[in-house]
Deep mutational scan, measured.
Amino acid sequence: MATGGRRGAAAAPLLVAVAALLLGAAGHLYPGEVCPGMDIRNNLTRLHELENCSVIEGHLQILLMFKTRPEDFRDLSFPKLIMITDYLLLFRVYGLESLKDLFPNLTVIRGSRLFFNYALVIFEMVHLKELGLYNLMNITRGSVRIEKNNELCYLATIDWSRILDSVEDNYIVLNKDDNEECGDICPGTAKGKTNCPATVINGQFVERCWTHSHCQKVCPTICKSHGCTAEGLCCHSECLGNCSQPDDPTKCVACRNFYLDGRCVETCPPPYYHFQDWRCVNFSFCQDLHHKCKNSRRQGCHQYVIHNNKCIPECPSGYTMNSSNLLCTPCLGPCPKVCHLLEGEKTIDSVTSAQELRGCTVINGSLIINIRGGNNLAAELEANLGLIEEISGYLKIRRSYALVSLSFFRKLRLIRGETLEIGNYSFYALDNQNLRQLWDWSKHNLTITQGKLFFHYNPKLCLSEIHKMEEVSGTKGRQERNDIALKTNGDQASCENELLKFSYIRTSFDKI
């Protein structure tokens, strides 16, 4: 039985969820670079991206490699990797027998973001014989899940209580170790020597080791999670996991709180800001991140802002960003909400898709409305799209047979046209069989910064309504002859009103 693990408890099935942008060198404390989270699957090609990484700022997932063999891993080693800020997950990587050479110096898994409450997941690794993470000293947050690894031993010899604050939620089941077939031998045991430290858990006094050649490092209890030197002297209180010299914040392997210019500090002093819960960055760093993602459509890219001495992905609820200094300031009234469309555009074809934009005031991208039916549609669209004030790209209304009016965009005031449909149009209306009105132009103002209007096959939309939009939106004169079809717009509506004058002759039985 794995020490510190839980057996036999019912657990939810383990679901495996399925960018080499360097964020800056980590400095003297770390020998390499800070790398983003990685999802490495199918083959070993991307694994080489770990070569210079000291910190993975995010998670590391290595999974679904069915053609790899043990010899493929023999020359692979990433000794610079010290810390993973989120979680480490391995799933069905064939041929991998140990992690001792792959990650010989991995010391800390912070667990800032977890995989279903777990910071370390080893699942269905069919050839893994031992973990071998002999320098792993601290899992700051989260638990361990090690399950269905039929060859995995050296679990009962690990004292997880020396690595985690609590072992109650560890789930370590259905491994070879369960069948008591392992016969784990710690260093020196074969020669009758006791080389590794022994600890007591559940009444068992057991030597602690990761492999037959690597003991588990056990520091004096007084050192807590700070770690200790090879001689057993406690590291500085700002260290986490390990250090090369005692009581020196510049000799830590990793930091308990924050890293700044080669030393570990309790908090980031001005003019620095907390970033990702582990390091200090200056304003320029946060500003660069903001600008890199301002026009990016890459998933996970955030326009970072500053709030409460932190550089964070977005302002919290009730705050909006001051564009001059990136500071989050309290909103006066309802907060603006910028919604970034991942692929640059979004099609609204149902109430469900409209709900995804609920509360958005600025759309960074283009909207395509293609709704053919739905219950209580006008009210639903207004509830979900009615706060949109600005669209950076274009607005396209296409084959939306259920629409009679666009009044559900009740606050839309600006279409920038930074991206144009077919390279020309910022407003595009095609084949809307029941569209009769755009907006009530006596109450609604709309500016279209650039781009043209396109109207074709809107049989109940009168040309007068379209011409009014040209005047109000500032697009009059931009359109070419064929942009607004004269014969297919309003051709099934009563669009022309003329005053009919009647004269009559009164007659009676005795007068003409």
Rank of each mutant, 00 (worst) to 15 (best):
F285T: 08
R110T: 04
D184V: 14
F285L: 06
N257A: 08
V200M: 11
C234K: 03
L136C: 04
C234S: 04
I62L: 06
K100L: 10
L106P: 00
C35E: 00
V55M: 06
C239G: 01
S324H: 15
M83K: 03
H302R: 06
C335A: 06
E49G: 05
S244T: 04
C239F: 00
V108C: 05
G183T: 07
P104K: 01
E181P: 03
S237V: 04
I163L: 10
P249I: 04
D277E: 13
C209T: 04
V253A: 09
V206P: 15
Q216T: 12
P79V: 03
F283H: 07
L96C: 10
T68H: 09
K176G: 07
C35M: 00
C239P: 00
K191E: 05
E238V: 02
F258W: 08
L164P: 01
H59V: 12
S237L: 07
F275D: 01
T211Y: 06
T140Q: 09
Q61Y: 02
L120P: 00
Q216K: 03
I82V: 06
A119R: 00
R92E: 00
K193I: 05
L64T: 10
C196G: 12
R141F: 09
I201H: 15
I84S: 00
R297Q: 11
D165P: 14
V144F: 02
L76A: 14
C182P: 13
V265S: 05
I84C: 01
F116A: 11
N43K: 09
V34P: 07
R145L: 11
E57W: 03
P197V: 06
G241I: 02
V144W: 01
D165R: 12
W278L: 05
G203E: 14
R141S: 06
F283K: 11
D75Y: 14
R74G: 02
V108S: 09
K148G: 04
R41Q: 07
Q299H: 13
S213Q: 14
L136W: 00
C311Y: 03
T199S: 06
T140D: 12
D277A: 13
E49I: 11
T199H: 14
K67E: 15
V206F: 15
V206H: 08
P104C: 01
Q61M: 04
P70V: 15
W210A: 06
M83W: 02
K100R: 11
V55W: 03
G183M: 06
G318R: 03
H48T: 09
L152R: 01
W160I: 02
S323T: 11
G241E: 02
Y304P: 03
C215E: 14
E151L: 11
N170Y: 04
A119K: 01
H48D: 04
S244R: 12
N149R: 01
T45I: 09
N175G: 11
K224Y: 15
Q216V: 12
I84P: 01
T68P: 07
T229F: 13
D247P: 02
D178T: 11
R110S: 08
L164G: 15
P104N: 00
L90P: 00
N170R: 07
P269R: 00
R145G: 03
T189R: 08
H236S: 12
Y118S: 09
H307P: 01
L60R: 00
F205P: 07
T45P: 15
S296H: 10
P70C: 05
M321L: 02
W160N: 01
S213M: 13
C153K: 10
F91C: 01
Y154M: 10
K294Y: 15
P246L: 06
Q287R: 15
L128A: 05
C331V: 14
E180S: 12
C182V: 02
L128T: 03
R41F: 15
L63C: 10
H59F: 03
L133K: 01
S237P: 11
D169C: 05
H290Y: 13
S213N: 08
P316N: 05
H212K: 15
P31H: 01
G192F: 15
T157L: 10
T199M: 04
I185V: 15
T157Q: 12
P246G: 11
R298S: 12
S225A: 10
A119L: 00
I158V: 07
V144T: 04
Q216G: 04
L63I: 04
W160R: 15
A119M: 00
Y118K: 06
C280P: 00
R256C: 02
P31G: 15
E168W: 11
C186Y: 02
I306L: 04
T229G: 03
K217P: 14
I172L: 15
E180W: 05
K176W: 12
G241S: 08
M321E: 01
H127S: 15
N308C: 02
K129I: 07
I82S: 06
L326F: 15
S77M: 14
C223F: 04
T320Q: 06
M137N: 11
T329I: 15
P313S: 09
F115R: 05
E57S: 08
I201R: 06
F285E: 01
P313Q: 06
N195W: 12
H28S: 04
L240Q: 05
Y259H: 09
N149Q: 03
D86R: 02
N117I: 09
I139A: 02
E314H: 02
G188V: 07
